[in-house]
């Protein structure tokens, strides 16, 4: 197996180790802890009063637009990373190209800003 794949095999091993260790600790805890269920204990906490309605209530997701903006900028970052590694080889050409790319995306942020999207509604 190549070194490249072995590195990722190590990652896989570490995931396995994390899940195993945590499960083992939870197992130890299961041996030590008491188990005395009662109806009162499993009521969800809502500042001491009985909960009203269901826990999965509708709530306004105020950062919906922020999430969309995030996707835009995160894809931008994905494009910048390989360019950043090879910048030395690209020189001035790469600099100008990426300058235009970042400027266009920056205009997107300015547009969102001017539209009042970044304001708390």
């Amino acid at each position: 197996m190549s070194d490249f794949l072995r590195s990722y095999l190590t990652v896989g091993i570490f995931v396995g180790v994390a899940v195993t260790i945590v499960s083992a600790l939870l197992g130890v805890s299961a041996l030590l802890r008491p188990n005395k269920p009662s109806p009162q204990k499993s009521i969800v906490y809502e500042s001491g009063v009985d909960p009203v309605g269901t826990g999965w209530s509708q709530s306004q997701v105020r950062y919906y637009i922020f999430a969309l903006l995030f996707v835009m900028f995160d894809v931008e970052a994905v494009f910048i990373f390989p360019w950043a590694v090879r910048l030395e080889a690209y020189g001035l050409f790469g600099l100008v190209e990426m300058g235009i790319f970042i400027f266009v995306l920056f205009l997107g942020l300015v547009y969102a800003w001017r539209k009042g999207v970044l304001r708390w509604v």
């Binding site: 805890s29 299961a30 030590l32 802890r33 008491p34 005395k36 969800v44 906490y45």
Partner: peptide
């Protein structure tokens, strides 16, 4: 201390 605490699952 935490190892000995009961593991609670809320209703629903």
């Amino acid at each position: 201390k935490w190892l000995q605490k009961e593991d609670l699952f809320p209703n629903g």
